[in-house]
């Protein structure tokens, strides 16, 4: 059972309080955009997800905590969380993720 650092509570909390919520940084198109999208483009948004081996940006929900959704970078091979951050922050770049990893490794 992981300890997950909630970026709102600012503390490590047991995984059992959280729920996974899928891939992060997939923006729902606004109504005008939706109308302009072909079925193929809409299906891409609706159904197609990355299946990353390595660092993955994903959403978590602190359901039995502060009730906030937030994002995380997690390594899908080691399962380890690299960093959690609030919704609204941009998708971290590869170099940013590397910096976080370096910081975590001391």
């Amino acid at each position: 059972m992981f300890l997950i650092h909630c970026p709102h509570c600012q503390e490590d909390r047991p995984e059992i309080e959280f729920a996974y919520a899928g891939e992060a940084h997939i923006v729902r198109p606004g109504p005008e955009q939706q109308d302009a999208m072909s079925d193929a483009e809409w299906s891409e948004f609706m159904f197609i997800r990355d299946n990353v081996r390595g660092e993955h940006c994903e959403r978590w929900w602190h359901a039995n905590g502060c009730n906030m959704f937030f994002n995380a970078v997690r390594n899908t091979v080691s399962d380890k969380f690299i960093k959690t951050y609030k919704i609204g922050h941009k998708r971290p770049s590869a170099s940013q993720i590397q910096k976080w990893k370096d910081a975590a490794n001391g």
């Binding site: 959403r59 929900w61 959704f69």
Partner: peptide, 13 residues
């Protein structure tokens, strides 16, 4: 409840 919170927090904050 989760569905509503999700849309509210992440798509329509």
């Amino acid at each position: 409840y989760r569905h509503m919170e999700d849309y509210l927090q992440t798509e329509f904050p």
